[in-house]
C-alpha cells in the first residue's frame, strides 16, 4: 500500500480509538467491564497456552462450516431447480415467502430439543437459516438470466445440459454469491445465539464463561476471536468469488466493499 494522505487518514480513527482505550483503561477512567486491549491480548495468550482457545475455535469452526455448507448446497440446488422448473417454483415460493420474514433463530429452542446441546442442533439451525437467502438469490438469478443469451445458445443447437452449465450458471453466479454472502453473515449470527443460549463448548461459551466469572478480559478475547473468524471467512468467500468470477464484478458495489 502506498503511503499517502488518504491511507494515513484511513488509520487515524481506529488507531486513536485503540490508543485512547488503552490509556484511559490504564488510568482507571473506564468502567471495569472494558478490559484494556493489552489485557485482552494477555487473556488470548492465556487461553491459547492452555489449549482452551483451540478446542473452542475448532468446535465453532466445525459447526459453522458444516452448517453453512449444508444450507448453501441445499439452497443452491433447490433455488436453481425453482428457477428452472415452474413446478418446483410453485411448490417452494409460498413456503419460502411465508418463512422468509421469520428470523430463523426463533426455531432455536425447538432445534435444541430435537437435536440436543451438541454439534447437531447448531449445524441444523445454521443450515436452516442459511438456506433461505441462498435459495432466494439463486432462484432470482436464474429467472433474471438474459433471455437473449438463452435464445442464442439454443439457436446454435446447444443441448440443455450445455446451456445450463455454460450459460445459466455463469450468468447467475454473481447474484448467487451475493446470496451466499448474506447466508454466511446469518450463519455467524445464529452460531453466536446458539452457543450463548445452549452449548457446552465453543467461542460463545468462552464469552458467557467470562461474563459469569467476571473475567471481562476473557469475554473480550472470545469476542475478538469471533469477530476475526467472521471477518476472515467473509474474506475467504470474496477471494473464492473473485477467482471464479474473474472480471464479472468490475465496477460493482460488491467489488468495492471488501
Amino acid at each position: 500500500m502506498r503511503i499517502n494522505s488518504a491511507s494515513i487518514q484511513n488509520w487515524i480513527l481506529p488507531v486513536a480509538a485503540l490508543a485512547a482505550w488503552e490509556i484511559l483503561g490504564r488510568a482507571g477512567l473506564l468502567p471495569r467491564y472494558l478490559s484494556t486491549p493489552s489485557a485482552i491480548l494477555a487473556a488470548l495468550w492465556e487461553i491459547a497456552l492452555t489449549g482452551e482457545l483451540f478446542v473452542a475455535l475448532a468446535a465453532s469452526l466445525y459447526r459453522v462450516s458444516v452448517g453453512f455448507a449444508l444450507g448453501t448446497a441445499a439452497g443452491i440446488v433447490v433455488g436453481l431447480g425453482a428457477g428452472i422448473l415452474p413446478g418446483v417454483r410453485h411448490f417452494f415460493d409460498p413456503l419460502v415467502s411465508f418463512l422468509y420474514s421469520i428470523p430463523k433463530v426463533t426455531f432455536l429452542p425447538i432445534f435444541l430439543l430435537l437435536f440436543g446441546l451438541g454439534h447437531a442442533s447448531k449445524i441444523a439451525i445454521i443450515a436452516f437459516s442459511g438456506f433461505f437467502p441462498v435459495f432466494v438469490a439463486s432462484r432470482h438469478a436464474v429467472l433474471s438470466v438474459d433471455k437473449l443469451l438463452l435464445w442464442a445458445a439454443r439457436n446454435m443447437g446447444a443441448p440443455s445440459r450445455t446451456i445450463f452449465f455454460r450459460v445459466v450458471i455463469p450468468a447467475a453466479a454473481p447474484q448467487l454469491f451475493g446470496g451466499i454472502r448474506i447466508g454466511l453473515a446469518h450463519a455467524f449470527v445464529v452460531l453466536f445465539a446458539a452457543e450463548l443460549i445452549g452449548s457446552k463448548v465453543g467461542l460463545g461459551t468462552i464469552i458467557s464463561y467470562g461474563e459469569e466469572w467476571v473475567r471481562f478480559d476473557l469475554m473480550f478475547a472470545g469476542i475478538v476471536c469471533f469477530a476475526v473468524l467472521g471477518f476472515l471467512s467473509d474474506r475467504m468467500l470474496l477471494a473464492i468469488r473473485s477467482r471464479l468470477l474473474k472480471g464479472q464484478m468490475i465496477g460493482t458495489e460488491e467489488e468495492i466493499v471488501r
Binding site: Q9, N10, P14, P31, F188, I223, R235
Partner: peptide
C-alpha cells in the same frame, strides 16, 4: 477517508458478538 475503513472493514464482522458488552454499558 476517516470512516471508510470503519464501515467497510467492520461490515463483514459479526457484530452480534459485541452484545454482551452492550448489556454492561
Amino acid at each position: 477517508n476517516l470512516f471508510e475503513p470503519i464501515f467497510f472493514i467492520g461490515y463483514p464482522i459479526p457484530k452480534i458478538a459485541l452484545f454482551p458488552v452492550f448489556t454492561y454499558i
